[in-house]
């Protein structure tokens, strides 16, 4: 650990370790990555609030179509990410985080309009993000959304509540593997 040890006191590290799913070494590594985003700002204040534009420079986020949503979900202040927000994000995306934590955050990421329900409109956004430059026609989109709703919408109200989302995720084995960022 050596030099980077001095960034945090032992106490701070203990706190971070107990409150996240990461080990101390991983936390220091996360900080290193955080620092790499904007060395100047972080040098001055280890918990500096970096604007979203900078956070998006992280390679994993840069190519992620949901980057705006992720930033929104993990930012505690809404206009940038502090190291703690960043650490929280990496903790949730780490291998150690249990599935239910991941599901909770995934729901928020996919809930574009923030109404605690995944509606047709949210699904449309998700699919558009996923397909990128390739556009589905209106009909195809509707067909796809209908299919998803058929599978997941248990109570036929044409929206997915968190419970329904969680239920369908529990049956979708790929989720836990894919909702993960390696440090």
């Amino acid at each position: 650990m050596g030099g980077s040890q001095s960034v945090f006191t032992e106490e701070e590290l203990d706190d971070y370790q107990t409150l996240t799913y990461l080990s101390k070494k991983e936390i220091l590594h996360v900080h290193k990555r955080f620092k790499a985003i904007s060395p100047g700002l972080v040098e001055a204040d280890k918990n500096a609030k970096l604007p979203f534009t900078k956070i998006r420079e992280l390679p994993e986020l840069k190519v992620n179509p949901f980057r705006d949503q992720i930033c929104k979900v993990f930012s505690s202040s809404g206009d940038g990410m502090t190291f703690e927000d960043f650490l929280d994000m990496m903790s949730v995306f780490s291998d150690g985080a249990p599935k239910n934590v991941k599901v909770e955050y995934a729901f928020r990421v996919y809930d574009f309009d923030g109404d605690d329900l995944i509606s047709d409109e949210d699904l449309k956004n998700v699919i558009e993000c996923l397909t990128g430059a390739n556009k589905l026609t209106e009909d195809e989109m509707q067909q796809l959304i209908d299919n998803i709703m058929e599978e997941a919408d248990l109570d036929d109200d044409k929206t997915l509540s968190f419970a329904e989302f969680e239920h369908v995720i529990s049956k979708a084995p790929d989720f836990v593997n894919s909702f993960r960022i390696r440090m």
Binding site: P59, E60, K62, V63, F93, G132, E151, S178, R180
Partner: peptide, 28 residues
């Protein structure tokens, strides 16, 4: 019982990807 479409949509994006080529490729 397998939610094929939901799995494809909600488990579709691979958050591990960090290369731009692969990201475009994955979207394809």
């Amino acid at each position: 019982a397998f939610p094929k479409y939901a799995n494809a949509v909600f488990g579709g994006w691979d958050y591990c990807i960090n290369s731009e080529n692969m990201a475009a490729f994955k979207q394809n």
